[in-house]
């Protein structure tokens, strides 16, 4: 999905992910993006711990002072920007796949499978997972993840919105992002979200029944931001 540019195991050329423009550009300036991408290339080469702001500046072809002007708090802020840019690209890359689905189940399966694949194929991520697993977690921990989940949820809610009300689409988008991250951090023997069959089993077992039966389960429907809830029950019959 990284548009031909990067063959796994090949030379560490920065994944030539065609920027579907809008999304990433809305998040940060071109200069910030240049720094964020330079960091990913450095990390793919020698890992997170050894990458300094100096390295990133050199890789980006700009001065250290400029990097600090863009990111006053330094490396951690650059890492966060890199992750944001990658999330936006991920969503841009998978949105075609999601748009091609014709029902909620297929859409959820595609979201889980394609995002898991996109992330595991990323060179910076795969280097870290192999050599510095603790740094993967450090950037996917606690409140740092809240921002990533929120971003992923709002970006993917457009696709899910074809099958769900808007606020629910956002929630379910965050739910999917949560599952993807959980299985990346701690892989499971039973579940591999990169495999369509396995992802479909998760969707069918844990996600769909909750979405289909929710009226029946919880008629009062208390939620953070009240929704207009129309129909008495969804018309989808329960899966056997």
């Amino acid at each position: 999905m990284v548009s031909g540019g990067s063959t796994p195991g090949g030379p560490i050329a920065e994944p030539a992910q065609a920027d579907a423009g809008v999304d990433v550009a809305a998040l940060m300036s071109p200069a910030e993006l240049r720094v964020a991408d330079a960091l990913l290339r450095c990390v793919a080469r020698w890992g997170m711990a050894k990458t300094t702001v100096e390295d990133v500046a050199k890789e980006a072809g700009i001065s250290r002072a400029t990097v600090y002007r863009l990111f006053p708090s330094g490396k951690d802020a650059i890492v966060r920007a890199s992750i944001q840019a990658q999330v936006a690209r991920l969503v841009a890359v998978i949105s075609d796949e999601l748009a091609a689905t014709s029902n909620l189940e297929d859409c959820l399966v595609a979201a889980l499978v394609e995002s898991t694949r996109f992330i595991t194929e990323n060179h910076a991520f795969s280097y870290l997972r192999a050599h510095e697993p603790e740094s993967v977690e450090a950037y996917l921990a606690f409140d740092r993840l809240d921002g990533i989940f929120g971003l992923a949820g709002s970006l993917v809610s457009g696709s899910l919105g074809r099958f769900l009300p808007d606020d629910e689409a956002y929630e379910v988008g965050v739910w999917c992002a949560r599952l993807v991250v959980s299985y990346l951090i701690l892989p499971s023997d039973d579940v591999d979200l990169a495999a369509p069959d396995s992802a479909r089993a998760v969707v069918r077992t844990y996600l769909l029944p909750a979405l289909i039966d929710q009226q029946a389960i919880n008629p009062t429907h208390p939620r953070p931001d009240p929704v207009v809830n129309d129909g008495p029950t969804e018309s989808n019959p329960e899966e056997p």
Binding site: Y206, A210, I217
Partner: peptide, 29 residues
């Protein structure tokens, strides 16, 4: 995941938390 990153859910609110548990935790179980 939720204890580490609630991502917008206020888990100290009993109603919200119950809705969350019924839906995302136990909805399929």
């Amino acid at each position: 995941s939720f204890l580490g990153s609630p991502a917008g859910w206020d888990l100290t609110d009993a109603d919200q938390t119950r809705r969350l548990v019924r839906r995302e935790f136990l909805g399929g179980i």
